[in-house]
Simulated assay, not measured.
Amino acid sequence: MTMMYDVLIIGAGQAGLSMGYFLKQSHLSFLIIDKEQEIGDVWRKRYDSLVLFTPKRYSSLPGLMMEGNVDELPKRDEVVEYLKKYATTYSLPIKHGTEVISVEKTKNIFHVVTNRGELLAKQIVVATGPFQTPKIPEISQNLDKSIKQLHSSQYKNSNQLQDGAVLVIGGGNSGTQIAVELSKTKEVYLSISQKLKFLPLTFASKSIFWWFDKLGILHANRDSFIAKKLQQQGDPVFGYELKESIQKGNVSLKPRTRNAEHSTIYFEDGDTIKVKNIIWATGFCLDYQWIKIKEAFDMQGNPKHKRGVTSVSGLYFLGLPWQHRRGSALLLGVGNDAKYLFQQIIENFEKSV
């Protein structure tokens, strides 16, 4: 017999767990499904030296603060343990090793086909987050097979790399952290497409995020003037480790990577280098081909939504970048969006009864 749920949550990362926290307080039946084998697996697969730039005070989900000094920056393994504790604390119903193959809607019911059978739901929350399909430029295919290439999501530590120089392509916080780490043992180049903007982790003995909180930046919704300016500028690099590494000559800055051929990398300024290793810190693409509901997406395949609510009754998205605020895709702000969607789900359910 195919199980029917009031709400099915796809994804058991921070977004799915936050949604589960609120649904646990309701009378609705729900299930969280995830293709990974264990809570925190996505985090566990990230690079070993990963440290969040948001302190524990601003890296906690609804109802449960991370253990330890709230002003400390959590390490990767602390996040993994925290998420596991969160799921246990609230006894969230999670089915692991369950990969969604397709989602369709007929009449008022969602049909979710997985590798472990079919599930039915009256409402669905897609909480798969923004880190889905690694984005690697086509020029990567022009390189010799002798060049070791990894996406930042595949990188764990320097032991994966060959002897010789490394080029990190991408100036986001992951790329810059990896570049700094590798510069301690290797010759490192960092290719960026725009000028780096550095912000301190602390100012006047307070976390920079404490100041963002007090100045209203953390709470600015995506359509506000300040939020639009932030989106145009892109993410800053938090902390000055990279800046110091560049000043010491441990990391060599390069402009945008224009092309690659055999073992040579070509940059926008006409310069070229040869390296043995490349880390593509070039982000991710959203991939929702498995959701067979065309009206939920625009021509580029992005969800059409307002604060995660789509025009398809009962279909919601959670954990998207700038879904409502700057931290919507992060531990920092996903709980706020989950609470809003919970209210929408309850209202929708009451209308249908």
Rank of each mutant, 00 (worst) to 15 (best):
G11N: 11
G13C: 08
A15R: 02
L17T: 01
G20T: 04
L23S: 04
F30E: 07
L31E: 05
I39A: 11
D41E: 13
V51K: 09
V51I: 15
T54E: 02
Y58N: 01
L64Y: 09
L64F: 14
L64M: 15
L64I: 12
E67K: 14
D71Y: 05
D71H: 07
D77A: 04
V79K: 06
V80H: 04
E81M: 10
T88A: 15
Y90G: 02
S91E: 08
L92M: 06
P93G: 00
K95E: 13
E99R: 08
E104M: 13
N108R: 10
N108W: 04
V113T: 14
Q132Y: 02
P134A: 01
K135L: 05
Q141C: 09
N142K: 14
N142A: 13
D144A: 03
I147Y: 07
K148C: 14
L150E: 03
H151A: 04
H151Y: 05
S152K: 00
S152W: 04
S153R: 04
S153E: 08
N157P: 03
N157M: 12
L161H: 12
Q162L: 15
Q162H: 15
N173F: 11
G175V: 05
Q177V: 08
Q177G: 11
I178K: 02
A179N: 03
L182K: 00
Q194E: 13
K195Q: 14
L196F: 07
L196Y: 09
F198L: 05
L199I: 13
S205T: 13
K206N: 11
I208W: 02
W211M: 07
W211F: 12
G216M: 05
H219T: 09
H219S: 15
A220D: 13
F225K: 05
K228Y: 06
P236C: 03
G239D: 06
E241I: 06
S245V: 11
I246Y: 05
L253S: 12
R256C: 09
R258T: 12
N259T: 10
A260T: 14
I265C: 04
G270F: 10
K274G: 08
N277H: 04
I278F: 08
I279N: 03
W280H: 03
G283K: 02
F284I: 00
K292S: 09
A296G: 11
F297G: 09
F297K: 02
V309T: 13
S311I: 13
S313I: 10
L315W: 00
L315E: 00
P321V: 02
Q323V: 06
H324C: 09
A329Y: 02
G333S: 04
D337H: 02
K339I: 01
Y340K: 00
Y340I: 00
Q343T: 13
N348C: 11
K351I: 09
S352F: 05
S352W: 04
